[in-house]
Simulated scan of single mutants.
Amino acid sequence: MNERMAARKKITNDSYFERVESLLAEGKVVKIPVKGTSMLPSLKEGDHVLLNTTDMREMKWGTIVLALYRGGYILHRLVGRKGDILELAGDNNWVQIERVERDAVIGMVTEAYRGTELLRIYSTGSMQRAWLRYKFKPLLRVWGGLINKLNLKR
């Protein structure tokens, strides 16, 4: 085995995120890769995000957070708050809203990159588009179903 492969040994998801939590607890900013498609079109697989520790006063609608959810980890947008319960949703998730306790939030995204390009995930335009996607999810779900049916008939 060459040195490069040895340096890239696989670790479990739990071990990885335990290390992320530890670094954040030390006050460090942590860069992690985005996995999956739940945050499309804002974030896609292969993008990288910078995480910082969270402060409830800084977290407002639209803040993207990393949270522990049902034994796994999710990187989703804050879409609601009821006391200490936060409601999270992926931009590309048309149905599910995850409800987590405030303590389940590990960090919040401060910056995102696609390659070397800084993504403007918190610009006014990006936040408006995220809000529209979230508010019109039921309509988008129906529209998507109709499009799929039309495509199946061809």
Rank of each mutant, 00 (worst) to 15 (best):
D47N: 08
L23N: 10
L50W: 01
W61Y: 15
V65T: 05
T37H: 09
T53G: 15
R57E: 07
G27P: 08
K60I: 10
A67G: 09
L43P: 02
H48F: 14
L23E: 12
W61H: 15
G27V: 10
E45Y: 00
D47Q: 01
T63E: 10
W61I: 14
P41D: 02
K28G: 05
V29D: 13
L43Y: 03
K44C: 01
V49T: 07
T37C: 09
I64R: 13
G46P: 09
I32W: 03
G46M: 10
D47P: 07
L66S: 04
L50G: 14
E21G: 14
K28T: 08
P33Q: 09
T54G: 12
L66V: 10
L50I: 07
G27W: 05
T37F: 13
M39I: 00
L23H: 09
K60V: 13
M59N: 06
P41H: 01
V65F: 00
R57L: 11
D55H: 12
G27N: 08
E58Q: 13
G71N: 02
N52T: 15
T53L: 09
P33T: 12
M59H: 04
W61A: 12
D47G: 09
V30W: 02
T53F: 14
L68V: 11
V20F: 01
W61L: 15
G27C: 11
V34G: 05
R70C: 11
G71A: 05
A25E: 02
E58V: 09
K44V: 12
L43G: 07
L50H: 14
Y69T: 02
A25N: 12
V30S: 04
D47A: 05
G27M: 08
G62T: 02
V49N: 03
L40Y: 00
K60F: 14
Y69R: 01
N52H: 13
R70F: 07
I64S: 04
M56H: 07
L24K: 07
S42I: 14
E26P: 04
V29A: 15
E58M: 04
M59G: 08
K31G: 06
G27Y: 04
V34C: 04
A25Y: 08
G36E: 08
V65S: 00
T63V: 10
V65R: 00
R57G: 05
K35C: 04
T63Q: 13
K31D: 06
L23C: 06
G71R: 01
K28A: 14
D55V: 11
H48T: 04
L43D: 06
I32K: 05
M59Q: 03
L51T: 07
V34P: 03
G62K: 11
V34K: 08
R57T: 05
E58L: 09
K44W: 09
K44N: 14
E45V: 00
G36Q: 06
M59I: 12
M39T: 05
V65Y: 01
S22V: 07
G62Y: 01
W61T: 15
M39A: 05
E45T: 06
G27H: 09
L40K: 06
K44S: 14
L51C: 12
G27I: 04
T37Q: 13
V65W: 02
A25S: 11
A25F: 00
G71K: 03
W61P: 11
G36A: 01
G62E: 03
G62F: 09
G27F: 11
E18H: 15
R57Q: 13
P41Q: 00
A67R: 03
Y69K: 03
E18N: 15
K44Q: 15
L68I: 05
M39G: 02
K35V: 04
D55Q: 00
P33E: 10
D47L: 03
